[in-house]
Design a protein around this nucleic acid. Structure first.
Lengths: 170, 170, 170, 170
DNA sequence: CCATAAGCGAGACGGTACGTCACGTCTTTGG
DNA sequence: CCAAAGACGTGACGTACCGTCTCGCTTATGG
């Protein structure tokens, strides 16, 4: 079923991603889908979040700035080129219409989770004050990219974004 | 009709904002709505964008940093407290599902238009290089706020955001 | 739609006579069927009762006994050989399961209506006491035939039935 | 299981008498019900027919007419006031929709069996010709009552019915 | 005296019809 | 003569049962 959802999302888009189509594609009864998930958003959430975390993981590098830039770059690739990223964009969209989906997304803290190890290492290196507002830093790393992706605008340069996010904290 | 759309959006949310309901609320035939707009997104777009630009305008202030912070603050208020902002959030959401809406939004450059005068004054003051990538600066001002609004997360501090966006350009 | 119901009843039987199939056969949306009738029993009722009354009408004859026998014979032919009769049997069956259908049938007084003119003429001829319980006479004319039809048993002889019904009233 | 069926029939009616509900009520797996009966009609048939025969038995009386009237009265009470009678009505109804049930009912000869001893005694008394069509007499006894019960009409008087059935045979 | 298999409850499975809703198109009708 | 009112065919929704199918868990016999 999860594979069916992934495939259908890229093939027909979220609008045409109906429960009926999911069940048919998965070769499964419609009731079976409803038995395990209560809406198409929940199916997509499960199908997406499995991969999403992995794609955002950042390997340790020499400098904090490099690591942050690598993270921003991972965000860019996730949102623009990845199947899971397409699912994430659709879910953020749906969350604007459906409070239940909003709550589902809120509880995932996808980016926060991925960037936390990086920020921890930055504190160890002395590049980030232990008292700094990590949520703000995360927002400044992710936000500019997400904004431009969601509105089909020109993507900002990852290094610029990383530099700005780091600069403000010193 | 536009008033009906605005009212219904805050009363029942975007999901329940059907063409049927709009027509009924406006005391108008359904066919008449279709005659002027081809989808509920288009109606909402027209109803929203009229107010949106006005709410984001920034008065000149003493320093560039102050002006940028004032802009970020305007973005925060627009997205969290304004009727037009609610429409904007719904439209960004719908744009993820429907390419036609995406194209509609892309062509609006809502924030870019509002921030341009501010950046122009910053260049005059010498606080911003004339060659700087203005789109990137805009993204770094708007993105962090929009990200947190769309995902129901903690809003970043406007001054931090303004400082970061300015810092990177030097 | 009514023709579709008639046709489907003889082709596939009442059990397979679904609203979905009716709509499809009639080349009509499912919603349209629901708009005009609230259940398949109601559609069938309307499709059946139009013809039913006509098929049970009895021409005046020389003697009361002849007329009664002709009526019983009409009942036999209606129930065993007529399309409308098949509908009537199905409706009587459904009435045992669904009180709404029972109420629908009760209000039709199909046989009572058809036999009334015959009994009126019998009173005129002096073959039936004006005080006789006409409903009982009707039941004794129709009941034996209907009983055997519904339970697939041997049909009683129309003349016997007519004679018995008349005998008891004198 | 049989008790569960009886109870459910009077509680919720035949329409809501699902295999699922029967199994649940009997505290039994659904598969177990299917193992022993192939449809809800078969379960109901077995649960009903055990009692039905007993309720229709007629004690010998002084005159044939009295016995016949007693039989008709037993039929009335069976069909209107008895739990088994409710089952019988539901089965007659279902038989109109499902040929398998029709065949099941046909083979039972419920009323014929109960009335046979009475008719045999009538022949002994000389009140009934040995050559008379017993099936017709049975139909004229049972039919009028069953007709009015199935169509929620006014019940005929048992004595009238008995007299009519007897009259025709002389 | 244990194990091994038969029969059970529980319940998930792929289906299919249900009745409702909104869609976008169309026809009718009254001001 | 336009626009409201609303019926139309379409198709997804979420629910209910259908009849089939595996599961473990008893329970009771046979090696």
């Amino acid at each position: 079923v999860l594979h069916a959802v992934d495939d259908l999302l890229v093939e027909v888009g979220y609008a045409a991603l109906t429960m009926t189509a999911i069940a048919e594609r998965a070769g499964v009864g419609r009731q079976t889908v409803y038995r395990w998930w209560s809406s198409k958003a929940e199916v997509l959430f499960e199908a997406t979040m499995i991969d999403a975390g992995r794609e955002l993981a950042v390997e340790p590098r020499g400098t904090t700035l490099d690591e942050l830039a690598a993270f921003v770059d991972a965000v860019v690739r996730f949102l623009t080129a990845s199947e899971a990223g397409a699912g994430y964009r659709a879910l953020v969209g749906e969350a604007q219409h459906d409070p239940q989906v909003a709550h589902l997304m809120e509880s995932s803290s996808l980016f926060d989770g991925a960037v936390d190890p990086v920020l921890a290492r930055a504190v160890d290196r002395g590049d980030l004050a232990p008292t700094a507002d990590r949520a703000s830093v995360t927002a400044m790393l992710v936000g500019p990219v997400l904004f431009r992706v969601l509105t089909d605008g020109p993507l900002p340069d990852p290094h610029h974004v990383a530099r700005a996010a780091l600069a403000v904290t010193t």
